[in-house]
Design a protein around this nucleic acid. Sequence first.
DNA 1: CTGCAGATTGAGCATTATGCACCCCACTCC
DNA 2: GGAGTGGGGTGCATAATGCTCAATCTGCAG
Lengths: 158, 158
Amino acid sequence: MPSTHRADRIDARILTALSDDPRATVMAVAERTGLSRNTVQARLSKLDDAGALRSFERRIDPAVLGYPLQAYVLTNVTQRKLDRVGAALDAIPEVLEVHGLSGVADLLVHVAAKDADDLYRVAGDILNIKGVKRTTTALVMREMVDYRVRPLLDTIAE
Amino acid sequence: MPSTHRADRIDARILTALSDDPRATVMAVAERTGLSRNTVQARLSKLDDAGALRSFERRIDPAVLGYPLQAYVLTNVTQRKLDRVGAALDAIPEVLEVHGLSGVADLLVHVAAKDADDLYRVAGDILNIKGVKRTTTALVMREMVDYRVRPLLDTIAE
DNA sequence: CTGCAGATTGAGCATTATGCACCCCACTCC
DNA sequence: GGAGTGGGGTGCATAATGCTCAATCTGCAG
């Protein structure tokens, strides 16, 4: 469903400017990028018409909501029940995201928790889902490289 | 450095409104939440003074930048060299984020790639870092639950 | 080389939003 | 009772927005 859209140099410059200052107005972006206000406005509406920008929720840190602990739960699933397990995971509030993988595990479940006990409980909830065979929990201890796309933007902008 | 800040019901309502419409103006948020413009403005400036909102880059989908493939590389590292490995990973453009873990692996490296060959190359780059002992690559095949914080926001907002 | 379609730009204009200051009120904690 | 905190209301000068129109300026096919 997403992104038949491919960002070019100009889009990259706009996105870079927005990364520098997410609350920047269209005018400010235009100034920063040396583009006209019209162009920036047109590009931006194309970008979000195309659904190129993901949910604002991505910018919300669970820690601020009182969930300072994060962990990744590698999950093995009885194959036929993948969808059911997905639905069950979706119903757990502490589940931030779930990726279907090829490789070591079937699912990578990203969870947040209030504290160690809470995490233990959530991990238990996941293990109790019918169709889940095995889980391995890895606690996030440090953010070594914070999510960034800048290097990719830079290669596009040359 | 982050978040001595803890969001309350009002913050949660504001954040929810912004999730519904990321480009909403302060006025629109005030209307949607039934709060006054003053309050919304004050809350928002507190939120970003406190650094409660993470980088705008989180909203940029690598797929739009021409990197439609994503993978997680579980990495085992010679412990003493963790920082050096972190720095080396930081230098690889295709590395989106790196988490330091407790558990199965030492590092969880999230990478993007243009295609299968590109991914293979990136995985090789990681494995070639001095201090990296072993890697396991898991390709992301499906987004089963897209990143979301809504359920957590809802519990706060009651 | 010529010409076309799409993108970029500059300008204008009515409408809204912003940032800030000031004041008031309700609630809580001493 | 008094001080402090946080939400709400109002006003105002300045700035941004959304939109349209017309004029270049591309890239590219013929």
